[in-house]
Computed example of a mutant assay.
Amino acid sequence: MERVSLLNIHIYPSSMTHESRLFRETAVIEQMNGFSEIEIVGVRATGLPNQEQISPTRRIVRLGPQKWDGQAKAISYALWMLNAIWYCCFVRRPQFINCHSLTTLPIGVLAKLFAGSTVIYDAHELETETNGLQGFRQALSRWLERALIRFCDHSIFVSKSIQEWYVNAYGLTDTSVIYNVPAVASAIGKGTALRDQLDIPAETKIFLYLGALAPGRGILSILEAFKRMPEFSVVFMGTGSLENQIKDAAKSLPNVHYVSPVLPADVVETASSADFGISMIEPTSLSYKFAMPNKLFEYLAAGLPVLASPIPEQEALVREHGVGVVTAGLSADDIYVAAQDIATQGDILRGGISSALAAYSWKNQSMDIQLIYNRFNVRSFPGYMRQGLGPK
């Protein structure tokens, strides 16, 4: 039988420089050899190529226009959406399209209607219940998701709690959970990058915060707690609205440090030079409350016990495998007490990391991704025969 040409598009409104989950998923799909082409469609950005081949069958396609600033931002996004609809529905007409956000789900549904595409909704969070989404925008998001999700052939979520919410809210039956974990088999060895870069003495314990420097992540409480713990150092690595506040604190507090983000492939290795990780997600929205943070898995892959806030799935993992200390609450006092506690039992807590990584390994996630695609036999793709791709 002649090999058919099959295309899988993954679409997300970013410039595709730090989308590590998306890259890992598409690498697994590539290894299955089910598609002759896999396109990762994003937004055009200054200094980045419009098309970028990243492996034999995977390429990034950055559609214009690039994001504009200020009041023109909404206009640029609307134009990008129109361009993406034209590209996906009428130019490329993929057999499979994976929508990695609610904002791109309309593109997937239109691709289903006009090109017969199979649609997978790969939500990176609880899309309608995110931090800061409220009022008319939230009402519109809820209406849009409810109207469109029934067109999806399968939905992927990032935690069991979020999966349960979607099943209960929309009556979904075809769903999976793919955790956002690094592609490592076991914790890597101890590094020295942060100590060397920041000139932190070997005897000083380093607490590392990875991720967005934004409200809802306990950052101000962390800063307040470490003011009272000069014997420890805390390092923030990320970007966001609180970045300048952290930099100001670093100028006045010798045990507070800020470093710029590294490439996704280098995160775990850099993190391994710390002693403990901090994951203080606050339940300020349902998306945050039900999260299973990717930073939690990055810390474990780096061999770090975790100082964790008491959101349900994170707390359950930390307690079940004994890989950290869960704070009693979210205040600076709670963080202070937990930091003192974790610092005295680091070696004991590190002993549970291997079992946690085995339970949530990327190998397991990869197998689940393959199971999702195996459900859709190539010959039963919608539009397969219509496009002249059937057996010769």
Score class of each variant (00 low, 15 high):
residue 223 L to H: 04
residue 28 V to C: 02
residue 92 R to G: 06
residue 210 L to P: 12
residue 70 G to Q: 05
residue 28 V to Y: 01
residue 330 L to C: 01
residue 331 S to H: 00
residue 41 V to C: 08
residue 13 P to N: 10
residue 312 P to W: 01
residue 109 V to S: 00
residue 339 A to D: 02
residue 180 N to I: 08
residue 284 T to E: 15
residue 125 E to T: 11
residue 187 A to S: 15
residue 88 C to Y: 09
residue 184 V to W: 06
residue 30 E to P: 08
residue 310 P to K: 03
residue 186 S to H: 15
residue 187 A to N: 14
residue 224 E to R: 12
residue 289 K to C: 11
residue 139 A to I: 06
residue 95 Q to I: 02
residue 155 S to R: 13
residue 8 N to P: 09
residue 342 I to T: 03
residue 290 F to P: 05
residue 374 N to L: 04
residue 34 G to P: 13
residue 233 S to W: 05
residue 120 I to F: 14
residue 97 I to N: 06
residue 347 D to R: 10
residue 28 V to N: 01
residue 206 I to E: 04
residue 234 V to I: 15
residue 344 T to W: 07
residue 25 E to H: 01
residue 248 D to L: 08
residue 209 Y to P: 00
residue 167 V to N: 15
residue 134 Q to N: 14
residue 152 C to M: 11
residue 272 S to V: 03
residue 88 C to I: 09
residue 276 F to K: 08
residue 285 S to N: 03
residue 85 I to C: 07
residue 142 R to G: 07
residue 384 Y to L: 14
residue 292 M to R: 14
residue 303 G to E: 07
residue 1 M to F: 03
residue 369 I to C: 02
residue 285 S to L: 06
residue 3 R to W: 11
residue 264 P to A: 13
residue 65 P to C: 04
residue 85 I to F: 05
residue 25 E to A: 02
residue 45 A to G: 14
residue 95 Q to P: 06
residue 161 S to W: 12
residue 117 S to L: 15
residue 227 K to W: 01
residue 328 A to H: 06
residue 212 A to K: 13
residue 317 L to V: 14
residue 296 L to R: 08
residue 242 L to G: 06
residue 16 M to Q: 11
residue 96 F to C: 09
residue 244 N to R: 08
residue 21 R to I: 02
residue 153 D to P: 00
residue 308 A to N: 10
residue 236 F to V: 11
residue 311 I to P: 05
residue 232 F to D: 10
residue 221 S to D: 04
residue 22 L to K: 00
residue 148 L to M: 13
residue 270 T to G: 04
residue 168 N to T: 12
residue 354 S to I: 06
residue 238 G to F: 00
residue 120 I to H: 09
residue 139 A to V: 05
residue 70 G to T: 04
residue 106 P to E: 12
residue 178 I to H: 10
residue 243 E to M: 09
residue 105 L to T: 07
residue 62 R to W: 12
residue 175 T to V: 15
residue 201 P to L: 05
residue 295 K to M: 02
residue 201 P to V: 04
residue 372 I to N: 02
residue 61 V to G: 07
residue 126 L to K: 12
residue 88 C to L: 12
residue 330 L to A: 03
residue 298 E to N: 10
residue 173 T to K: 15
residue 318 V to E: 10
residue 138 Q to A: 07
residue 77 Y to D: 04
residue 74 A to F: 08
residue 339 A to F: 03
residue 101 S to R: 08
residue 58 R to E: 13
residue 69 D to M: 08
residue 252 S to A: 12
residue 22 L to W: 00
residue 377 N to R: 15
residue 196 D to C: 03
residue 377 N to M: 13
residue 60 I to V: 08
residue 209 Y to T: 02
residue 207 F to E: 05
residue 357 L to T: 11
residue 206 I to Y: 03
residue 234 V to W: 14
residue 319 R to Q: 14
residue 244 N to E: 10
residue 259 V to P: 10
residue 182 P to A: 06
residue 308 A to C: 11
residue 298 E to W: 00
residue 302 A to S: 13
residue 341 D to W: 01
residue 138 Q to P: 00
residue 19 E to G: 01
residue 104 T to Q: 09
residue 296 L to W: 05
residue 86 W to T: 06
residue 323 V to C: 08
residue 97 I to P: 02
residue 10 H to W: 04
residue 19 E to P: 01
residue 54 I to S: 05
